[in-house]
Amino acid sequence: MSIQHFRVALIPFFAAFCLPVFAHPETLVKVKDAEDQLGARVGYIELDLNSGKILESFRPEERFPMMSTFKVLLCGAVLSRVDAGQEQLGRRIHYSQNDLVEYSPVTEKHLTDGMTVRELCSAAITMSDNTAANLLLTTIGGPKELTAFLHNMGDHVTRLDRWEPELNEAIPNDERDTTMPAAMATTLRKLLTGELLTLASRQQLIDWMEADKVAGPLLRSALPAGWFIADKSGAGERGSRGIIAALGPDGKPSRIVVIYTTGSQATMDERNRQIAEIGASLIKHW
């Protein structure tokens, strides 16, 4: 067993022997301040990774656009098919120029040779490549099948209805392509620590998230040296922004954090800054 596999296998073990965790309302004060600064709703939840206990939450059962955070769930569904012998990570998928959609920095470079399922998941999570996500959605049967996968996990809230990039439209009061912070946090925890996926697939999923290259201005910008984070960000229309993450000190994750916002007129930089400040408060009061 590799060191990384050992780390993920012992996530519940280490967490069980940690000192009790206590909620700190100071972080919620910052979440509410972010709402004021952005002029928009902000949803927040913080779960203990081992027990699933909610440590703090704000608007945990209000719907927010998922945006690209759905790509972690998508690759979880792909990995479940791999575990069941219905898919192979090494299978190569070929596609054409007509398949390319807006923001496809990886797939646009491989029109000639195609990409493997493993490479597509890596591109979808680490670079948020939209064509990679659409190609992977095709392998599982489309958005409705991802929703069905989530329902089978016990998540009857999260739903995907459309493809990239239309799913980022974020129309107010439109339930399409949305989740709730509580539902997303619980589902992410199941994917990373539950028995739904094999140990190898859980490790692969967290490795992809740990290698995320496009979430630097968010929670990662607030992390002290030595902290662990595996995350996936999302951005959408109407001032929408979000991030889902597993993080913790001492090089291992111990909490799940989900943050979503929508309806702001603020710039992307300002949305990023507010999420980073929430992260800084979380870490300060850990």
Rank of each mutant, 00 (worst) to 15 (best):
H24F: 04
H24V: 07
H24I: 07
T27W: 11
L28Q: 13
L28W: 02
K30M: 15
K30W: 11
K30G: 12
V31H: 01
K32Y: 15
K32N: 13
K32I: 14
K32E: 15
K32Q: 15
D33M: 02
D33F: 03
D36Y: 03
D36A: 04
G39V: 07
G39K: 03
G39A: 04
R41D: 12
V42I: 02
V42K: 01
V42N: 02
V42L: 04
V42T: 04
G43M: 01
Y44E: 01
Y44H: 03
I45K: 01
I45G: 07
I45A: 12
I45M: 12
L47S: 09
D48M: 02
D48I: 07
L49T: 05
S51Q: 03
G52A: 12
K53N: 11
I54M: 09
L55M: 03
S57D: 04
S57L: 07
F58K: 15
P60K: 09
E62I: 02
R63K: 13
F64E: 01
P65I: 13
M66P: 01
M66W: 01
M67I: 08
S68K: 00
K71P: 00
L73Q: 15
L73S: 09
L74G: 14
L74T: 07
C75F: 00
C75V: 07
G76H: 08
A77Q: 04
A77D: 08
V78F: 10
V78A: 12
L79I: 13
S80P: 02
R81W: 12
R81M: 07
R81N: 03
V82F: 09
V82W: 11
V82L: 08
V82K: 13
D83L: 04
D83C: 02
A84Y: 08
E87I: 03
Q88E: 15
L89D: 06
G90P: 13
R91G: 12
R92E: 10
I93P: 14
I93C: 15
Y95D: 01
S96W: 09
N98W: 10
D99P: 05
L100V: 08
L100Y: 05
L100E: 14
V101Y: 05
V101Q: 04
V101T: 10
E102L: 05
Y103C: 11
S104A: 09
P105R: 04
P105C: 05
T107G: 10
K109G: 06
L111Q: 08
T112M: 13
G114C: 03
M115S: 05
T116Q: 11
T116K: 14
R118V: 07
E119M: 15
E119T: 09
L120Y: 03
L120P: 00
C121Y: 00
S122M: 03
S122V: 06
A123N: 02
A124E: 01
A124Q: 11
I125C: 07
T126V: 06
S128Y: 00
S128H: 00
D129K: 00
N130E: 01
T131R: 06
T131P: 06
T131H: 10
A132V: 01
A133D: 01
N134Q: 12
L135E: 12
L135S: 07
L136A: 09
L136C: 13
L137Q: 07
L137D: 02
T138I: 14
T138H: 13
T139I: 13
T139P: 10
I140N: 05
G141A: 10
G141R: 10
G141E: 15
G142D: 07
G142I: 02
P143W: 05
P143A: 09
P143R: 04
K144P: 03
K144L: 04
E145H: 12
E145S: 14
E145I: 06
L146A: 06
A148C: 10
A148N: 11
F149E: 05
L150K: 01
N152A: 06
N152V: 05
D155E: 03
D155R: 01
D155Y: 01
H156D: 11
H156M: 13
H156A: 11
V157T: 11
L160V: 09
D161R: 04
D161C: 10
D161W: 02
R162F: 04
R162D: 06
W163H: 12
W163L: 05
E164K: 01
E164Q: 00
P165T: 05
P165I: 02
E166G: 14
E166T: 11
N168P: 13
N168I: 13
N168D: 09
N168M: 15
E169D: 03
E169I: 04
E169S: 03
A170M: 07
I171H: 15
P172K: 13
N173L: 11
N173K: 08
R176D: 13
D177F: 00
T178E: 04
M180Y: 02
P181H: 01
P181E: 00
A182M: 04
A182H: 11
M184L: 02
A185L: 08
A185Y: 00
A185S: 08
A185H: 01
T187D: 14
L188Q: 03
L188Y: 07
R189G: 05
R189N: 07
R189A: 06
K190I: 14
K190T: 11
L191M: 03
L191S: 04
G194T: 10
E195N: 02
E195I: 03
L196I: 11
L197D: 15
L197W: 04
L199P: 10
L199F: 14
S201Y: 11
S201K: 14
Q203S: 03
Q203P: 02
Q204C: 14
Q204P: 05
Q204S: 05
I206M: 15
D207N: 05
D207A: 06
M209A: 10
M209K: 01
E210C: 09
A211H: 15
A211D: 15
D212C: 15
D212G: 14
D212Y: 02
K213Y: 13
K213V: 05
V214H: 13
V214M: 11
V214G: 08
V214A: 08
A215W: 09
G216Y: 09
P217Q: 12
P217I: 15
L219Y: 11
S221I: 12
S221K: 02
S221M: 06
P224D: 06
A225Q: 02
A225L: 04
A225R: 11
A225I: 04
G226F: 11
G226A: 07
W227G: 07
I229F: 13
I229S: 09
A230R: 03
K232L: 00
S233H: 02
S233I: 01
G234R: 00
G234H: 00
G236R: 01
E237S: 12
G239F: 15
G239D: 12
S240L: 13
S240G: 11
S240C: 14
S240N: 02
R241F: 15
G242M: 14
G242S: 13
G242R: 00
G242F: 00
I243T: 14
I243C: 15
A245R: 00
A245D: 00
A245T: 07
A246C: 13
A246P: 01
L247C: 10
G248M: 02
P249G: 09
D250F: 03
D250K: 02
G251D: 11
K252H: 09
P253H: 03
S254R: 10
S254G: 04
S254M: 04
S254Y: 02
R255G: 09
I256A: 07
I256S: 12
V258R: 00
I259S: 07
I259Q: 01
I259C: 02
I259N: 01
I259T: 03
Y260N: 04
Y260V: 09
T261V: 10
T261N: 11
T262R: 08
S264N: 10
S264G: 10
S264C: 09
Q265R: 05
A266K: 04
A266L: 03
T267K: 04
T267M: 06
M268Y: 12
D269K: 03
D269I: 02
E270P: 04
R271I: 02
R271H: 15
R271L: 10
R271V: 09
N272R: 14
N272M: 15
Q274I: 08
Q274G: 09
I275H: 10
A276Q: 06
E277T: 05
I278K: 00
S281T: 05
S281G: 08
L282T: 04
L282Q: 10
I283D: 02
K284N: 03
K284M: 03
K284T: 05
H285N: 12
H285L: 06
